[in-house]
């Protein structure tokens, strides 16, 4: 009998006894529920799951999960999680962060964790605002956006998280609307399956300080026309009538209508998430119409743990030291009688 066989969990097994304290109507509830539903599907043991967060609304997430977890300090979750994973590579380690936590105060850790490609999963709750400190502009707030700290309008141009991440060599980048739990659940499973750092940007509505910031893309009535949900190996087609698609026109992406000007489905670009060259992935990330969601980039690469493990084995095989005494008494020693 296989003793390590997948245990049958339900979403309830992953809910802690803590009362969830996000504002009513917040997308965070959707994300939490999607995660609790995804975990039983992943085949990981509950005791092997660790959630690490920084500071902010999103960072309360670990308290609501009945797994191991640490609510860290502002911006540092990727570094804490890196230590957890390097100490025990068998764990399934998740980072929960927000746009301020990851790209303002924690910007340095965010780019370096992506560069190193440690097998972590990062959930970036992007609501384009500081929620927990009550409404200041964040690194993803729009120019001219009025907030508590920009009463006449924000003057600082925003980061596009995917552009920054892929620029920092992210091997897995996905984007999803905060109101699409079914797709989100599957995306979490895909992130866990991916060997390397996976980053999921969740467009998360803040009902209090930035309500409706993504409505133009995520509202049920416009979603199909405004969002292109890409799937690996599939043509990039969107629209209620599945008649819009992307083609390359020179060095730019262009939206075309199938059936017009002689365009057929064969002319539409087919999504290749596994392509090493990030050029097209960057263009997809930057596109404003349609907004591209789904797994935009999934390039399989060697992880840091794999490099470290191989190097350690090599050093161990060639070392004359097995115990520290071998080292201490080696080389230039001398006797005093």
């Amino acid at each position: 009998m296989e003793t390590t066989a997948k245990k049958e969990y339900t979403f309830k097994d992953f809910a802690s006894n803590q009362e969830v304290r996000w504002c009513p109507g917040c997308d965070d509830y959707v994300i939490l529920r999607s995660m609790q539903k995804a975990l039983p599907e992943m085949g990981v043991k509950k005791e092997d799951v660790v959630f690490i967060s920084g500071i902010g609304c999103s960072s309360r997430f670990p308290y609501y999960m009945d797994t191991y977890g640490m609510h860290g300090i502002h911006g540092r979750a990727p570094a804490i999680a890196s230590g957890v994973k390097l100490a025990n590579p068998d764990l399934s380690v998740w980072v929960v962060t927000g746009d301020g936590d990851s790209m303002a105060i924690g910007g340095n850790h965010f780019i370096h964790v992506l560069r190193r490609n440690i097998d972590l999963n990062i959930l970036l709750f992007n609501n384009e605002i500081y929620g927990l400190t009550k409404g200041q502009f964040s690194p993803t707030s729009l120019v001219r956006q009025k907030t508590k700290s920009s009463p006449y309008g924000n003057t600082q141009p925003p980061f596009q998280p995917g552009e920054l991440a892929i620029g920092a060599q992210a091997r897995f980048f996905a984007r999803i609307g905060g109101n699409t739990p079914k797709e989100m659940t599957q995306m979490f499973i895909d992130a866990e399956t991916f060997n390397g750092t996976s980053l999921i940007e969740i467009l998360q509505n803040c009902v209090i300080f930035n309500d409706g910031c993504f409505t133009q893309y995520t509202d049920k009535n416009v979603r199909e026309d405004q969002q292109l949900f890409v799937e690996d190996g599939e043509p990039m087609i969107f629209g209620k009538n599945k008649d819009k698609g992307l083609v390359l026109n020179g060095l730019k992406l262009e939206v075309v209508t199938i059936g017009e000007n002689g365009i057929t489905e064969q002319d539409i670009l087919v999504h290749n998430a596994g392509e090493q060259d990030p050029t097209l992935h960057q263009m997809l990330v930057r596109l404003e119409y349609p907004l591209v969601t789904g797994i935009i980039r999934r390039f399989q690469d060697v992880t840091l743990e794999e490099r470290e493990d191989a190097l350690t084995k090599e050093v161990m095989a060639n070392s004359k030291f097995t115990k520290t005494d071998d080292l201490f008494f080696s080389g230039e020693t001398y006797e005093v009688k």
Partner: peptide
Amino acid sequence: HFGVKAFQAEDEIAGITSAIGASFA
């Protein structure tokens, strides 16, 4: 060869926070 995991971090803060993560683990 003694199994030491030495991690040169991106800054001082990541030096200690990675150590905190490793200690937790």
